[in-house]
Design a protein around this nucleic acid. Structure first.
Lengths: 160, 160
DNA sequence: ATTAATGCAAACGGTTTGCACTACT
DNA sequence: AGTAGTGCAAACCGTTTGCATTAAT
């Protein structure tokens, strides 16, 4: 997952050009968000991104961040899914296509890799002609550690 | 498997007793919600349940509905997951254990049956000791009809 | 000069909470 | 009588929107 990017050495370097190619603009605020995204591994909530942007630039305004996320999603640079609590979870596209596992006991999360989901994807494609968006896949359950202990109820998901 | 049902013919008939057994109470408001749930197939959002209760009893108060849903979830009578837009999706337990497929193009939803997810469940169990909660599974992608047409972006999920 | 993007503030929508009151047991 | 549950209203939190202003092109 590290070699031979299509055009630029760092995919992030393309972004300003891609924006301008659409008549959109490259602003300091977008620069901040892109810097945050570039430093992000895995998934982040919208609110988290706002917070991290604010750390870089205290003048960050939420609406600007969300509006830019919309644009970036149209450009195919980020995608969003939903976490256990229903909040928006963004993740950066360049990463391999994968979904997420959520433990409703400890709230931990891990990636579901394409090969693990392959059978499900294949079955749904054959039986229903359904094309799974792996990046949006959320599998909830109990991790090995939590599976042993008591039944987690709704409250477990609210803790934290 | 036909004779002597554990306690009641209709599982809903047990509810008042199960509540009282815990020192909880059977109220008209809970009666309304249970009636709505009993008439519900598939999944419903919390807001939808509030609305349907209000149809039966215009005096319905949202907080009462949500509080009762919490109780019912503790009793194992409903479970919740999250839909495409992140809202709470409740569904009634007695139904077979299944997840949901969401088409991000047309916003349609279908069930993912246990056998379709079996391979995924097995892989995650073997490789990670993870116990999948099928009722919480959300698979997003494009249905057969939508897969042919143009790329759906974030906006497709906002439409409607 | 255009017009996309920003800042701000207010709205939104679903959900939650505090508290005094009601009513189930 | 005792206490779970209700109604109400206000708070909450993440996200969205309208609009006048700013700034990238």
């Amino acid at each position: 997952m590290r070699e031979t990017p299509p055009t630029a050495a760092d995919p992030w370097d393309e972004v300003p050009g891609r924006l301008r190619a659409r008549g959109l603009r490259w602003t300091p605020q977008r620069r901040t968000l892109l810097a945050v995204l570039a430093a992000t591994r895995g998934h982040v909530t919208g609110a988290e991104l706002v917070e991290r942007c604010r750390a870089m630039d205290p003048a960050t305004i939420p609406s600007t961040v969300y509006r830019t996320l919309d644009v970036l999603e149209e450009l195919g640079i980020v995608r969003h899914a939903h976490g256990l609590d229903g909040r928006e979870e963004f993740h950066v596209l360049p990463a391999a296509d994968h979904g997420h596992i959520w433990c409703s006991g400890c709230l931990g999360t891990w990636d579901v890799h394409a090969d693990e989901a392959a059978a499900l994807v294949a079955v749904l494609a054959q039986r229903r002609g359904f094309r799974v968006d792996l990046s949006h896949l959320s599998v909830v359950g109990l991790c090995e550690g939590c599976a042993g202990e008591g039944q987690p109820g709704r409250e477990a998901q609210r803790a934290g």
